[in-house]
Simulated scan of single mutants.
Amino acid sequence: MEPAKKQDPLVLVADIGGTNARFALMDERGDVVRTETRQVAEYPTFLDALDAFLEHGGEHPTRASFAVAGPVTDGHAAFTNSPWTIDRAQLRDRKGFDECLVINDFRALSAYALSPPLGDLLQIKPGQPIADAPVLVIGPGTGLGQSLAVPDVDNIVTVPTEGGHVVLAASTDEEDRLIELMEDELGRAVTGEDVVSGSGLERLHRAMLTAKGQEIGKFSAPDITQGALAGDPMALATVNQFLLFLGTLASNAALSTGARRGVLLAGGILPRVREILVKSGFTERFIGESPMADYLRRIPVHLIIAGDAALRGAYVALRRAEQGTCATPM
């Protein structure tokens, strides 16, 4: 009989997007032991990338939690921007995981959201949080993610949503014109994700150039954010308008969900433009001038600046599932 393969007490976690897949091994205290980022385009399947990570270190974890940038149904996730699929049953069968979680990445962030280390956060707006109210997590990256963390006695309910796909509302005549231009481009109503996301930033920039009668050149979202940080007037105007639209969406979501414990801004774009965010009109737009302005004024808003928040959220979600304090199947 062959000797049993030595098992490792470490927990495997991953944060998987359409472009990058970040893997890590964490110990029982939740500390990262080893981490690597793999490019999605370099591997035909998710299992190929996972095998490359594990073979590099020689570990054989039996517990795993995967945070996925997209909807998850019965432990299965597919991506719109890559050919990868992730399936909990296949992972358990092929990799021998005793415990395996596949969850939406913003659901992982929700698991992290109720007790993030203070060093992980940058205050955007102070407030008076209500301890037993929900926390809203919202943020632009490849798309516009949104989720809730709802405390319930000793339990926690994490709720992934598709709130990024709500129709975007204008607050000024200028925004009306920009939305009209983007509707012409898309051939349909403009959603939050159509504007407040990586591709959305590019679309907004095209609309703003068109509105000002300027030539539309070739540019990417990183080009725009880098230009804004360097002081390019048009790029800076685009990023500021992007943040105003985010303020509208975050405000509406906070009102819709009663997120009076706070709002956490997440995603890959905002940490890169944090200096612009803190000086922008985001807070004024978030509070607004409606009869609910005082309600919104009391909601604190922070930016997650820790790069491994989704990884740690995936770890927290797995531990809560093991302890029976969440209802996610493994």
Rank of each mutant, 00 (worst) to 15 (best):
L181N: 09
D194W: 07
C326A: 12
L270D: 01
F66N: 08
D132A: 15
F282E: 01
F286Q: 01
E55C: 14
G200K: 00
T85C: 09
G227L: 06
D154Y: 13
D120M: 13
P329V: 14
G70R: 01
P3R: 10
A133Y: 04
E59Y: 13
G268Q: 03
D132Q: 15
D132P: 14
L118F: 06
A235H: 02
L25S: 05
P291G: 08
N240P: 00
A259V: 08
P9C: 13
S197E: 00
F23A: 12
M182K: 12
L265M: 03
L296S: 08
S199Q: 07
C100N: 04
P151D: 05
P116I: 11
A250F: 07
F66C: 10
G313R: 01
L296M: 09
R298I: 07
V196L: 13
E174K: 00
T158H: 11
D31Y: 09
A78Q: 03
V195C: 03
L311S: 05
G187T: 11
L229V: 13
A24S: 08
I287Y: 04
L303M: 04
G141K: 08
A24G: 06
A14N: 04
A309F: 02
I130D: 04
D87T: 08
A69T: 11
A21I: 13
G164M: 04
D48M: 11
T80Y: 03
L204E: 04
L101Q: 03
R285K: 02
A314P: 06
P151N: 02
F245T: 05
D152Y: 10
A228N: 00
I304W: 03
N20E: 10
I269F: 00
T62A: 14
F79D: 06
E193L: 11
S171M: 05
A250W: 02
T283F: 01
D87K: 06
E322L: 15
E42V: 15
D223T: 08
K6D: 07
I130R: 04
L12I: 07
G145K: 04
D31S: 07
A67C: 07
H302I: 08
Q128N: 12
G96R: 09
A309Y: 02
H165V: 14
V167Q: 00
T257E: 05
N81L: 15
T325L: 10
V150D: 03
P129G: 14
L264W: 00
V263S: 06
N240F: 09
R177L: 03
Q7Y: 09
A14T: 13
G96A: 10
L12G: 05
M330I: 15
A133K: 07
P140T: 02
V135L: 05
V150T: 09
P3D: 14
R38T: 12
P129W: 13
D93G: 13
T45W: 13
I179A: 07
G143K: 01
V137T: 15
G17N: 09
R206Q: 05
G198C: 10
A24C: 09
R63N: 13
F286N: 01
R260C: 11
R63V: 15
E284N: 09
I86D: 01
D120S: 11
L244K: 06
A14C: 11
L303H: 03
L243R: 05
A293N: 01
T248I: 14
P71Q: 10
V263L: 07
G217R: 00
G267E: 02
D105G: 01
I130G: 07
T225L: 05
V196K: 01
E175F: 06
D87V: 09
